[in-house]
Design a protein around this nucleic acid. Structure first.
Lengths: 341, 341
DNA sequence: TTGTATGCGTTATCAC
DNA sequence: GTGATAACGCATACAA
């Protein structure tokens, strides 16, 4: 392994000068710089991260923790994190918060001993224990969740987003709109989203119909059954995740109902999965990749611990695809098979 | 930050002894051990990873590189990597190989300066440049791809798997079986899979019908159109990824064909997306999570660079869900004009 | 069984 | 503008 001393020897200067050149500091002649750079190129020198981190008490590492690594939503945020980190010369360390966030403190302790530049927490609430495990010198920002006022966070306004989604269905003429909510205990945003739905329904003097899943695909069919048991005449279902949304579309079709002709379905998140169903799912989009990028930016620019607890709200957006349509009057006969286009 | 010296002072011993206790070496009395452990607990001491790594020339870091971070297949492998790494006390560093693997060398250089314990490469071929960037001291294993005989790898036998899948469709009575292949240039396994399909078709004296997508969802509809243009009477489609598989199911339905009544669809990979369609996709399963775990195990157990180039083959498995069925005779009420051969 | 001393590769503080 | 030197926190060879 070639060290800064090797470079110094070849360039005929001292290690200190090499360090200055490498770090772009001032205090050397153009000629010296050239010689050092030549030596670096010749030897293929690369500064040792560990030694540097030990000395400077900082490494270019950003930790990312998500409840489940293979989750589509978390993956897309991570993708943004990776991109933003890479262009800035940072590396990403991946962890899983695990059930009840039990893994998180361990990961945060590790991140502390790595002297990480910051930590991004996806879809998980920051507990005091977690904050303690990380120590006080490392900034922490949570993404896709609004964690009260205690810690910095980056998210959409889930309540308004759900309100807007519900309003959209109402504007399409729907009156009997079911909500397929997620588990409020495991995914905090579900409370806010449910509130948005209730507010929109209440303002329109409509009766809410609610069932709960756990945000994942498999939880949706039984929850939908629950929903239909309460009101078999539902003409729209608002599913609060883009795993449940496609599941609702598929399950409705399995039950012989057409989407959107008989029932409109609206999803939430705009993950890739929303496009993996036919008809493609209309949904409320969160700027997931962008959230990941912004989280990095935020950690790195105003990364000091005194940044303050102001949550940052990002814009959501309604995306209309094929799964929502204006309500239709009861039809006489199912017009089947048409020419393909 | 509390160091090994602080612990030593509180415990009334030397730093060397603390180090011995921390690392579970021999050479201290039970009484000393107790005192040291008490001091550690009292101070909340945690060994500094950077200093330790600098000294031992090893860190508990495993690098994971995938073409696209948010890809379902890569995510599931990563999930296995994370789990296996965590229980062994290792951390995972995440990177993206990027278009043409252009990002990979940079990441590998970084991983080298971190003195990573090993690197796992998902779905990407190991180039000499990559191997050079990583240096010679760090083991590298590729997953979900068989990279010739040059580097260790962990994958299923893609050719046999595709052969088995095709045989299965044939066994169901299908004779006109289309293959929706991926791009052989970007995803090397596609060549082997295509070979397996061709062999099975040839053995059964059936005519192959092939079109190419790029393994992603959006590439499937046009490729399917291509396939149907070559043989509108196809009764089965074998799609070589679980993004293209659901896309084929959806697109066939959009064209007014029933799955599996009119056309059977078989996918490949068994990612979560295979269950996000209705009917759920029959597919060839790769043990993705397990692959991630095994990759970690392999790096850590026989992690030395001299491990040898033997590729390790994992078992694949055919999973029958709703999208495949025995061929049916032409049914009485055809939705469209048929009869063209 | 335990302690002392050294060095891993770097950066920062000083002197020149 | 440049170089010698100390220190970051740890593990280890060697001495005791």
């Amino acid at each position: 392994m070639t060290t800064i001393r090797d470079v110094a020897r070849v360039a005929g200067v001292s290690p200190a000068t090499v360090s200055r050149v490498v770090n772009g500091l001032i205090g050397y002649s153009a000629e010296t710089q050239r010689r050092v750079e030549d030596a670096i190129a010749q030897l293929g020198y690369e500064p040792d991260t560990l030694a540097r981190g030990l000395r400077t008490k900082q490494t270019a590492v950003i930790g990312v923790l998500a409840p489940v690594v293979s989750d589509a939503l978390a993956s897309e945020i991570m993708s943004g994190v990776e991109a933003a980190a890479r262009v800035r010369g940072y590396s990403v360390m991946l962890g899983r918060t695990g059930p009840g966030s039990t893994f998180a403190p361990g990961y945060l302790r590790t991140l502390r001993t790595y002297r990480a530049a910051g930590v991004i927490l996806i879809s998980a609430a920051i507990t005091p224990e977690m904050r303690r495990a990380l120590g006080s010198g490392i900034p922490l920002v949570s993404v896709a969740i609004r964690d009260g006022q205690r810690f910095p966070s980056l998210a959409i306004d889930d309540e308004v987003a759900a309100y807007d989604g519900t309003r959209h269905l109402i504007a399409l003429g729907h009156r009997r709109i079911g909500l397929l909510a997620g588990d409020p205990d495991s995914v905090l945003v579900n409370t806010a989203r449910k509130r948005g739905y209730l507010r929109a329904m209440s303002e329109a003097a409509l009766a809410p119909v609610i069932a709960h899943g756990n945000s994942l695909y498999d939880s949706a069919p039984p929850a939908l059954a629950d929903l239909l048991a309460r009101d078999a005449g539902l003409t729209a279902v608002f599913a609060l995740s883009d795993e449940m949304g496609p599941a609702v579309v598929n399950e409705l079709q399995r039950r012989g109902r057409r989407v959107p002709d008989d029932v409109s379905v609206l999803g939430f998140d705009n993950t890739r999965t929303s496009q993996h169903v036919h008809p493609a799912l209309s949904t409320i989009a969160q700027p997931l990749e962008r959230m990941g990028e912004l989280a990095v930016e935020r950690l790195l620019t105003d990364g000091l611990p005194s940044t303050g607890p102001v949550p940052r709200i990002l814009p959501h957006r309604l995306i209309e695809r094929g799964s929502t349509a204006p309500i239709r009057p009861a039809r006489p006969n199912p017009p089947r098979n048409k020419e393909q286009s």
